[in-house]
């Protein structure tokens, strides 16, 4: 496994986040801002996954775009990847403000890393509840989150016009700004 040999050598990891998810975008922007104070070559670059599968494969030939959207990834300079809670720990390790905290995730007892396990669990919970927090790209909530999602939708609808039903559950309406009605023949 190796990255594109023609690509310039990279010295910092890349955090890939879901740019369509408000939660991920906020976190990614925070990481990007926090990394600005790090000396060159020691921080991390945060960038959205985007929509170009080939660009991702240049970072790591085994990285599929669907996988990149499914879970947070950190691509290390040697093209190896960390995902989920491990990726979060790597991000924390790379930022001065959180480096002190990241040390505990390496703490191991009999081969078990208890703090990393807690972080993995926290990541999975955050991943599941993203639709409640403003994620526009997560699709339908997981079953355990759906009652809370309905409650959140009801709370948001209080005092507002009732939202219109979507044509199907498995359908993501485009933002209103991108909906332009023109004839199919383009004329």
């Amino acid at each position: 496994m190796s990255a594109d040999p023609d690509a310039p050598e990279r010295v910092v990891p890349i955090l890939l986040y879901d740019g369509g998810c408000a939660v991920c975008r906020s976190i990614g922007q925070w990481v990007g801002a926090a990394a600005l104070v790090v000396p060159p070559g020691q921080g991390i670059v945060a960038q959205p996954v985007g929509d170009d599968p080939a660009a991702l494969r240049r970072l790591n030939p085994t990285l599929g775009i669907w996988d990149a959207y499914a879970v947070v990834h950190v691509i290390m300079p040697d093209s190896s990847m960390k995902t989920g809670g491990e990726a979060v720990a790597e991000v924390l390790r790379r930022l001065p403000a959180t480096r002190w905290l990241a040390g505990c995730f390496s703490f191991s007892v009999l081969g078990v890393r208890p703090f990393q396990m807690i972080l993995n669990l926290a990541y999975n919970i955050l991943d599941d509840i993203r639709p409640l927090l403003g994620c526009d790209s997560c699709g339908r909530s997981r079953p355990w989150v759906q009652p809370f999602a309905r409650l959140a939708a009801w709370l948001r609808s209080l005092g507002k016009q009732m939202p219109t039903a979507q044509p199907a559950l498995h359908f993501r309406p485009l933002p209103a700004t991108t909906q332009v009605r023109v004839p199919p023949n383009g004329l």
Binding site: D18, G20, D51, W66
Partner: peptide, 12 residues
Amino acid sequence: MSYGCGYCRTIE
């Protein structure tokens, strides 16, 4: 479709 669409990911 869009790669950032969760429904598209589900149905892929």
